[in-house]
Design a protein around this nucleic acid. Structure first.
Length: 825
DNA sequence: AGCACGCCGACT
DNA sequence: GTCGGCGTGCTC
């Protein structure tokens, strides 16, 4: 019977982004299934590539002569379920990505197999004088000493420009042969294990049979009495014997030494086991509502809006318990930055080694091991950052997304997917429950809850009946008028003093790192900028460097203005480094620590700082938004926000939303113990609604105000935003191409829909808010689209920008398309 | 993307 | 003739 497979080929090009059909040879027809990887010949050179089987069928609609055969099946079992394949196909259309990009995201990283070619001389006694070509002679000579060398190595060693044609010619003359071997990037980790082959009953007999001098061997035999098998390393350690002792026992067939796969240990197993906590009234209500749906086994979506400290995690845990009882599995997503041991511990201490953890801190091998634990049904729960949404569970029961509003749920690389949307889709495909949770839901999600797409569950009280902290807003303009030029208002200063006296710990928050944001000449106004990006350089005092926060460029600060040679160089704006310095200057004999990207770049430094804070070795912790999430330190009664305006003044439609979320989250770090906490918010804009509502912990009030503005100014959730960013080295060319593309898109949209309001929904192409990054100029166009029109517009963008229907010379520019981006900057 | 093919000019 | 360089066009 004829059977064909449609395959995604492992080739990173928009031009090969289609499904290719291959014939399935008879001998593979029984074993090949959708979701397996195969090796196929591709292109004119029949280069062997990995492919993923997406569909199977028994008829084809085009010329059979073009068909090639699948060469080999890679997997014994599908690595992707049909649900995950469908999810991937959906993502491709939704985010205008390529097949290969999507499926590389869904598959575990590094699983891709590469075919390597090994080159051999057929006859080692060949007479090379018969070979006329210089290059071919060179190759054969080299192969005499390096027979069976890998192709890439040969290429590197010989530096022959057109080595492929020389090899081809040699091959056709049967002088060399090429062997293909499939190699995988990551190898499983193996460990030697000793298996007992004798019965305990026979021990006396065995001991007698051994040589009198074989003292150690006898010890080992006796030791093995209590074991069926034991790791070689443990055995030699515990008995104090050497490997040779064990080996001689092996030669006597008393034991065998085998290589056993050992999963790398990602979690520290020594977490204390904890029991369920009793749920309060609100938690119980919430739990029951969701649990009903779990019992009904019908896909449903929930949004838990619960204030900071309302005990959402405990509800999640008890829901998961029930899901597992039903033989189903659970995915728990948390934002990357709060994926600290503190959060993971809560789940692991309840579920033990039934949990797999996936996050960016893992090595490729570790990640692969965790993935396989899920795949092989060794765990029922995965906890991880956004990519854990693709965990290959077979019977998914629930997806929980905590801190639903977080930016990191939107991917900024292709496919630029929104985890919330993907989770919605997956929960529908798998018939699972989706639970989103947040103290400050994103405006989008809350709107959808109001529209009935999510069932809204409110938790307004803190679980241990703690009171919400008191938030005071300080007008920094008044402070200045009263002659206070420091970065601390009188109020914050006094509060810090009292809290230090009471041996309480303090968190100070400023969402900007470095020392000064820009330096400029007072005489002529010259500002030091990055030579390859169009942004001002940030001064980092500790390293005495001006750094570019976009490309990492760094230089020593100037003492004289390079433009007018004036010595009056001034440093403007404050960052966390400056706050640190001011704290040290103002409050003596205290321990201060700063936590931002600059101090936490080393592995584990994040945890180390938090551990020291927990052990009260730090009095004042200063940090960026890194410290706004999930930290639960009962000894903190004061949180100070140095400048709330930073996020507020960004030219982005979500600036208010961000500010409100950030203030609420930071405030939530205060008063987690028995006593009521305090928050001091310093700002130059105390009457801004996001600050006013954050002060009274009034999410709903904020939401109502914000959603009104979104409607008036035509922003999400009322429209979708599509951002297309063009970047290239030549500005004039970039501008020209951007305009061609923009015109083509507008023309097509008009053609499809005469009534489309182009002037209100499509921005003219213009330079990006950051017009240059890493020497590449950036132009941008923004399209607003209703849900109804979105599909058509995306399709137009696909044909114009990706398939290049109009033959615009787009190969010189990079086009990045982002559907509903995090920010439009 | 990665490769072959074809065309051209340079070099033995 | 052979080799290297480069532009073009295709990949089931």
């Amino acid at each position: 019977m004829d059977l064909y497979a449609e395959i995604i080929v492992d080739n990173n090009s928009t031009q090969t982004d289609i499904l290719y059909t291959y014939r399935i040879p008879i001998e593979f027809q029984d074993n090949l299934k959708i979701g397996m990887r195969v090796i196929v010949p591709f292109g004119m050179g029949n280069m062997l590539l990995q492919g993923l089987v997406i569909k199977m069928k028994n008829t084809i609609s085009f010329n059979k002569n073009k068909l090639k055969d699948i060469v080999e099946i890679v997997d014994k079992e599908p690595i992707l379920s049909s649900n995950l394949i469908e999810l991937g196909l959906w993502m491709r259309r939704e985010y205008l990505a390529q097949y290969i990009e999507v499926f590389k995201t869904i598959m575990p990283t590094g699983i891709t197999k590469k075919v390597k070619q090994y080159i051999y001389v057929v006859d080692e006694n060949i007479n090379i004088t018969n070979i006329k070509s210089k290059n071919q002679k060179k190759i054969i000579k080299f192969l005499f000493d390096n027979n069976g060398i890998e192709f890439e190595e040969l290429k590197k060693a010989l530096e022959i420009s057109n080595i492929n044609s020389s090899l081809k010619s040699l091959k056709s003359k049967n002088i060399i042969k090429v062997e293909n071997k499939i190699e995988q990037d990551i190898n499983k980790k193996y460990e030697k294990v000793v298996v007992k082959l004798f019965k305990n009953l026979d021990i006396p007999k065995i001991l007698k049979g051994l040589n009198k001098l074989a003292k150690k061997q006898k010890e080992v035999i006796l030791f093995l009495k209590d074991y069926k098998e034991i790791k070689l390393k443990d055995l030699t350690n515990l008995v104090g014997s050497s490997y040779s002792t064990i080996r001689s026992l092996e030669s006597k067939n008393l034991i065998s030494i085998i290589d056993k796969e050992s999963p790398r240990q990602v979690l520290d197993k020594n977490y204390k086991k904890t029991e369920n906590m009793e749920l309060n009234k609100e938690q119980t209500e919430c739990y029951n509502r969701i649990n009903n749906s779990i019992s009904n086994e019908k896909s449903k979506k929930f949004l838990i809006h619960g204030v900071t400290g309302s005990g959402k995690t405990e509800v999640y845990i008890q829901l998961i318990e029930n899901v597992i009882k039903k033989q189903k599995q659970a995915i728990v997503l948390i934002p990357e930055i709060s994926l600290t041991p503190q959060t993971v511990e809560r789940f692991v201490s309840r579920f033990g080694n039934n949990v797999a953890v996936l996050h960016s801190g893992l090595s490729l091998g570790e990640r692969y091991d965790e993935w396989r634990k899920i795949k092989e049904n060794k765990v029922d729960i995965v906890i991880g950052a956004r990519s854990a949404i693709f965990a290959p569970f077979k019977n998914l029961g629930i997806i929980i997304i905590d801190e639903e509003h977080e930016n990191s749920y939107k991917s900024s690389i292709n496919p630029k997917y929104d985890t919330i949307k993907v989770a919605e889709k997956r929960s529908e495909l798998e018939n699972a429950i989706l639970v989103l949770g947040s103290a400050t839901p994103s405006i989008n999600t809350y709107y959808l809850a109001e529209m009935g797409k999510y069932e809204l569950l409110q938790m307004n009280k803190r679980a241990n009946k703690q009171e919400m902290p008191n938030v005071d807003v300080i007008d920094m303009r008044e402070e200045l008028e009263n002659g206070n030029k420091t970065i601390f208002s009188n109020r914050l200063y006094n509060d810090i003093i009292t809290n230090l006296k009471d041996e309480r710990q303090i968190i100070l928050f400023l969402n900007r790192r470095g020392f000064s944001t820009f330096i400029s000449c007072r005489e002529c106004g010259y500002v030091e900028k990055c030579p390859s990006c169009d942004v001002s350089l940030t001064f980092h005092k500790k390293e005495n460097w001006l750094k570019c926060h976009y490309c990492g460029f760094a230089k020593k600060p100037v003492e004289v203005c390079p433009k007018c040679e004036s010595k009056y160089i001034r440093y403007f704006g404050i960052g966390t480094q400056k706050v640190e310095e001011m704290v040290k200057k103002t409050f003596e004999n205290i321990n201060v620590e700063r936590m931002d990207i600059d101090t936490t770049s080393k592995k584990n430094s994040h945890e180390e700082i938090l551990d020291r804070f927990k052990n009260k070795e730090i009095d004042i912790l200063i940090g960026t938004q890194m410290i706004s999430k999930g930290l639960d330190f009962p000894n903190v009664l004061l949180v100070g926000v140095i400048a709330a305006d930073l996020t507020l003044n960004l030219p982005d439609y979500r600036a208010s939303e961000r500010t409100f979320q950030l203030l609420t989250q930071v405030a939530g770090r205060s008063g987690r113990g028995e006593r009521k906490g305090n928050v001091v918010v310093q700002t130059y804009d105390p009457n801004h609604y996001s600050i006013i509502y954050a002060r009274s912990h009034d999410y709903i009030g904020f939401y109502k105000e914000e959603i009104k503005l979104r409607k008036i100014f035509n922003y999400p959730p009322y429209v979708n935003i599509i951002s297309i960013v063009f970047s290239g080295l030549d500005v004039r060319e970039l501008e020209k191409i951007t305009k061609y593309i923009s015109d083509a898109i507008i023309k097509n949209i008009r053609y499809k829909n005469k009534d489309f309001d182009v002037s209100n929904n499509i921005s003219k192409p213009m330079p990006s808010p950051i017009p240059k990054i890493k020497n590449k100029y950036r132009w941008q166009m923004i399209i607003k689209s209703s849900d109804k029109e979105l599909k058509v517009i995306k399709n137009i963008i696909y044909w114009v920008c990706i398939k290049n229907k109009y033959n615009i010379p787009i190969d010189k520019v990079k086009i990045s398309i982002d559907i509903n981006p995090n920010s439009i900057m």
